[in-house]
Simulated scan of single mutants.
Amino acid sequence: MAIRLADDVFRAPGLELFDFPPLWSGAPFWLTKPVVMAVTGAFLLCALAWAAFAKPTLVPRGMQNAGEIVYLFIRDQVARPFLGKDADRWMPLLLSLFCLILLWNFMGVIPGIQFPINSHIAFPIVFALAAYVIKIYLGIRHQGLVGYFRNLMFPPGLPKALALVLYAPLELLYTFVTAPFTHAVRLFANMFAGHLLLAFFSAAGFWLLYEHPTVAGAPVGLLSVAVAVAMTGFEMFLQFLQAFLFTMLTAMYIGGALHPEH
């Protein structure tokens, strides 16, 4: 995609935004900027959790107050609705998952970083695979191997012949392929598209107003900057929403494995 103004060409940002070489020549292929940012974010989250809960007081203040707000939000809006009496047991996983995904997403709007870690498909895939390994393990542990696949493939009330021919293959495909794939891609695709759009409007505004200013191009440049600012706010909402939805779906899958009758 290119926009021609006068004798110059504006080239829109593309997939090169997501192509990060190793940090130095000879470094392992996986040692890239997103990996370093992801590890840094994980350590930062540990530091924030330590600051919030290392020395709790009866009346929370500062970091403890913020930490408890996030904890109560995940407990009341995610864990308890799907896990019931098992909610507290799974809160460490769900809280950590939500906070880490949210922090990695917010890196896309932090000046100087401006790259959402989850726009690299490898990171959402790891989260999704971890959730599904836990789901299948719990399902087999609580229902038994035979019971798990029987409940999965032959729900009560459905004729056995119909279940065997139609329902069972589709349910197996959904459980082991489609569901984990969509769980990961939903997070990845939103972060990928949002980052690309923000980069486009920001680059267009910079190019039209600073690098190649013209009378005709100035209004378009100003509009591009305004759209970039508005989209930054919208993107932050989506970053929060995707972290919430990913965590909620994880809780739902765990709850379904623990309580298949529901």
Rank of each mutant, 00 (worst) to 15 (best):
L208V: 01
T178G: 01
T214Q: 06
M91A: 08
A130S: 12
P124G: 07
A2G: 01
R61S: 13
R4W: 09
Q64E: 15
L138V: 09
V109H: 11
V59D: 13
I110L: 15
F192W: 15
V146I: 14
W50N: 07
V9G: 01
F98K: 01
A179Y: 03
A54W: 14
F154G: 01
A257S: 15
I254C: 04
I254F: 05
V165E: 12
M153A: 14
V165W: 11
F246K: 01
I3D: 10
G108V: 05
G194H: 05
P124E: 08
Q114L: 01
A42E: 06
L94D: 09
V229W: 11
G194A: 02
Q64H: 09
K135I: 03
F53I: 08
Q239F: 10
V220L: 02
G157P: 04
H195W: 08
P124Q: 08
V185I: 15
L166Q: 03
L138S: 05
L196A: 15
T182S: 13
G157R: 12
L93G: 01
Q143L: 05
G108K: 02
R61Y: 08
L93I: 07
I134K: 03
Y167P: 00
V78S: 10
I136Q: 02
F201K: 02
Y253H: 04
L23D: 03
S96H: 00
V215F: 08
H195C: 07
P111Y: 06
W207A: 04
I125N: 15
F82M: 09
Y132G: 01
L100H: 13
T57W: 00
L209Y: 00
A128F: 11
L187T: 08
S25P: 03
D86Q: 13
W207D: 02
W90Q: 04
A128N: 12
Y71V: 04
I101R: 00
F154R: 08
A204F: 02
A161Y: 13
Q114Y: 03
H183F: 09
M153G: 15
A251S: 11
M63P: 04
M231C: 13
Y71F: 13
N151P: 06
E211C: 00
A257T: 05
H183R: 01
F43D: 02
H259D: 03
K55N: 11
A161W: 11
G233P: 11
A87Y: 05
A216L: 14
C99R: 04
A66G: 12
F53M: 06
L138N: 04
L187G: 03
P60S: 07
T214I: 00
H183I: 00
L241K: 13
A257M: 07
V215T: 14
Y137F: 08
R89K: 15
L23T: 10
F244S: 04
V229D: 06
Q77A: 15
D86L: 07
M107W: 07
F20D: 14
W104N: 05
A228H: 09
A230Q: 02
G256A: 04
A193Y: 09
Q143R: 05
W50A: 13
H142R: 10
A128K: 08
G26K: 06
V229G: 01
F10C: 06
I69G: 11
T175W: 00
G62I: 11
Y253L: 13
L93P: 00
L241S: 12
A230S: 12
P60I: 11
G217S: 14
A38S: 14
G14I: 09
E16M: 06
